[in-house]
Write a protein that binds this DNA or RNA. Sequence first.
DNA 1: ATCATTTGTTAAATATTTTTAACAATTCAA
DNA 2: TTGAATTGTTAAAAATATTTAACAAATGAT
Lengths: 181, 181
Amino acid sequence: MENIGLRLKALRSSRGLSQRRLANESGVSNATVSLIENGRTDPSMGMLKRILDSLNVSFAEFFAADSLAENRFFYRHAELAEISSGPISYLQVGSDLSGSQLQILYERYQPGADTGQSMLSHEAEEGGVILQGRLEVTVGKQVQTLSAGDAYRFNSSLPHRFRNTGNEDCLVVSACTPPSF
Amino acid sequence: MENIGLRLKALRSSRGLSQRRLANESGVSNATVSLIENGRTDPSMGMLKRILDSLNVSFAEFFAADSLAENRFFYRHAELAEISSGPISYLQVGSDLSGSQLQILYERYQPGADTGQSMLSHEAEEGGVILQGRLEVTVGKQVQTLSAGDAYRFNSSLPHRFRNTGNEDCLVVSACTPPSF
DNA sequence: ATCATTTGTTAAATATTTTTAACAATTCAA
DNA sequence: TTGAATTGTTAAAAATATTTAACAAATGAT
C-alpha cells in the first residue's frame, strides 16, 4: 500500500498538520499514521476512514486521483499542484489534465522574473487576470504593462513573453486550452 | 463497514460469481469474502484491493458510488445493478440514484411474467422501448401488445400493468423520472 | 547555550483481521 | 430418492495491524 501512504502524506503535509496532530484529531495513534505513510502496514478501512474523516476527505475523493480523468470539483489552495517553482512558480488547478481541454494556473512572478525572449509559441488559446503587482506582457509586436485587475487574452500561436517589471511579487491566474504543459 | 459489504456483495452477484470463485480469483479465502460482505470485519485495504482487482474495479470506481451524485458515465452490462430478480428482473443503470432525477432500467420478463393487476400508480413519468419478445401493456383502460421496436410512454399516476404474453423472454429498456424504487 | 517541545520512527504488547477447517443448507444429476 | 458438489457461515488457529511507550533528532524559547 505504498501508494496510499504517499498520498496520505501529501494530503497531511499540504494541510500543515503533524502526524500527532492528525492522529489525535482522528482518534488513532501517531504510530499508525507513521506506519501507513511509510507503507509499513496494510491499514484497515476503518483506520483509513477515521483519518480521512478528520481531513474531510471521502474515500471517493481520496482515490479520485486514480482515475486518469479527474472528477474533483473543488481544490483548496494548498492542494494546487506545483508544476514548476523558482522565479516563476506555477500552481495548477488539478493534477491530471489528460482528457481535459482546460488548464488553469495560479502563477507567481518574483521581481525581475522573465519567461525569456524566446518567444516560443504553441497551438492554443490562453488568457489571464492579474491579481497583484505589475506584469509586462508582450504579444506579437505589442507590449503592455498590466496591474491588478487587468487581463489578457490571445491565441498562443502568436509569440509571447511575460516579465515582472515591478518590485513586488506579481500574481496571475491564467487559463489555457488545450493545456500547454 | 456495513455499506462496503453490501456494495461488494451487489458487485459480486451482478457478475454471477460465488464467494468461493471470487475468493480464488482474488487469492483470498472465501471466509474473508463472507466476513466482509456481512460487515463482520474491518477489511484491510490490501484485501479489498486484491478482491477489486480481480473484478477489474479500481478503488476510485468502487468508492465513486459514495458521492451521492454518481459521477460515472459508462457501465458495462455486467455492472448494471440487479435491483430485483425472479420472473421479472430489473437491471438498473447506476446503483445510487439519490440526487438523480432519472432512472433507467434493463428489464427481462419471463414468459407469463406479470406485474400484477394491482394497477398501483405513483407520481412520475415513464417510458420504454421493447427490444425482444411481446409485452402487453395496460394503461388506464387501454391495452396494447407491443413487440421489438415498439415503445410506450405515460404518466405514472395512471394505473398500469405489464405482462409478457409471448413464449420467449421479453426485453425492455425503460426510463422513469423521478426514480420509482 | 540550554532546556523544553515537538518532530518522526520503532520494538514489544495488545487487539484485530485472515485463514483453516469444519458445518448445515442448497443445487444438480442420475 | 440418493450421492456428490456447491452454496454461505462460523469457531479456533495463525497472521497481521494497532497501540503503548520509548527513542533520537530537530525546533523554539529564554
